[in-house]
């Protein structure tokens, strides 16, 4: 792959925050990728949608609340955030419950979007 080529890179998030480190460390890779000038998108599937839940208060578990970072992604030109419609419904969530504006897609449409990627990173 030649230098300077823009590739479509999708981050697939399927884990809830705090119970494991994956959500946080995935976000760290997203932020680094922003510096590489790629076509970045994030997909939140299954329990991954919990990462975006409003009102996270982590003082009691003595862990850093990283949910505000999702709101900062826009400043890094990362604006393609996709959420699985079925995942929201299964968890009693609506788009208003999320910390950022997202595009809600039916599962299979999200799958079609994945088909168009050059690289998929999952944690």
């Amino acid at each position: 792959m030649a230098e300077g080529t823009t590739r479509k890179v999708m981050f697939v998030n399927r884990t809830a925050p705090y119970g494991t480190v994956y959500a946080l460390e995935s976000l760290e890779v997203v932020l680094i990728t922003a510096a590489f000038d790629q076509d970045v998108s994030l997909a939140f599937i299954g329990d991954g949608v919990w990462q975006l839940k409003k009102g996270q208060q982590t003082k009691g578990i003595e862990t850093k609340n990283f949910s505000p970072t999702y709101r900062a992604l826009e400043g890094y030109d990362i604006e393609k955030l996709y959420v699985e419609r079925e995942a929201l419904a299964e968890r009693g969530l609506a788009p208003e419950d999320l910390v950022v504006d997202v595009t809600v897609l039916p599962a299979r449409e999200l799958g079609a979007l994945m088909d168009g990627q050059d690289v998929i990173l999952s944690f």
Partner: peptide, 8 residues
């Protein structure tokens, strides 16, 4: 399940 639900 997630794979079968989402992947085309």
């Amino acid at each position: 399940d997630a794979c079968l639900r989402i992947a085309t």
